[in-house]
Design a protein around this nucleic acid. Sequence first.
DNA 1: TCTTGACCTCAAGCTGACTTGAAGTGGCAG
DNA 2: CTGCCACTTCAAGTCAGCTTGAGGTCAAGA
Lengths: 144, 144
Amino acid sequence: MLEISDVAKQSGIPASTLRYYEERGLIRSAGRRGLRRLFEPDVLERLGLISLGRAAGFTLEEIAAMMSEEGPRIERTALVSKAEELDEKIRQLTIMRDGLRHAANCRAPSHMECPHFRRILRAAMTGRISVGSGRSTGLNGRND
Amino acid sequence: MLEISDVAKQSGIPASTLRYYEERGLIRSAGRRGLRRLFEPDVLERLGLISLGRAAGFTLEEIAAMMSEEGPRIERTALVSKAEELDEKIRQLTIMRDGLRHAANCRAPSHMECPHFRRILRAAMTGRISVGSGRSTGLNGRND
DNA sequence: TCTTGACCTCAAGCTGACTTGAAGTGGCAG
DNA sequence: CTGCCACTTCAAGTCAGCTTGAGGTCAAGA
């Protein structure tokens, strides 16, 4: 049995987030000692799955839905379609990265005069490119 | 000179967003006809750049800082470092995608019993994986 | 001239995933 | 037995990037 502070320490996820996850039904505490939550060690594994899900772009709600009482039971079709989404996102990010890298090296007096850059620009305007906000997913843990 | 509705139509960006962008100093209106904003046509190019920046993961504030009075003047070092960020993100998403794809095909009774899956899980927990929220970046345009 | 309605402003609301603050509780060291 | 303080709860705040609503304005068509 682990106290919340142990779980926090070992997972790198703040206690407040753990409480929040419990509230959202993502994890369960195995009981209390007084007021204090106690967790079974396998909560760490579960937290890993949550992190995995977040990193893959699932919302907490989706993750909660996927994780049944008896360990994770993830619908395979959901996995496949999420993998495809990631493929698309990777493709777009790759274009962006190449574009940025090109723009950084381009000798055109202004980026607007570079055909390559303008092509990227068109891609950006028409291509439904979506990229994350850059906010952490809770995996970093550092947040005082 | 374009009215805001023209700009909205041609860029796919809602008028409310255009007003918001103006407020944030990302675009300027060239004047008014009565109350109504008028824009010079080159605002469309500027909006393209903004979309590009958003897609590459810059915040609106960063983009505003990069766009000087005299057309875009983007620091090359910023481009390079953003490209590196994208590289990292691509790497992480690739790991995730492979993990999801494997999990979809894996015959282990529970994903937790599959060594491959657990390896991904460990990578997820240790690798500072960060991914976007999945919210749009304004490139999609559709949002009545 | 009058009406229309697309535009305007300003403040507030929204989403998702948390964090923070105030006020309360109780296990355990001394 | 007492006090400490790490935990607890609950409500509210935060962040980014917008959207929405209420109430106002005014150029243009009839």
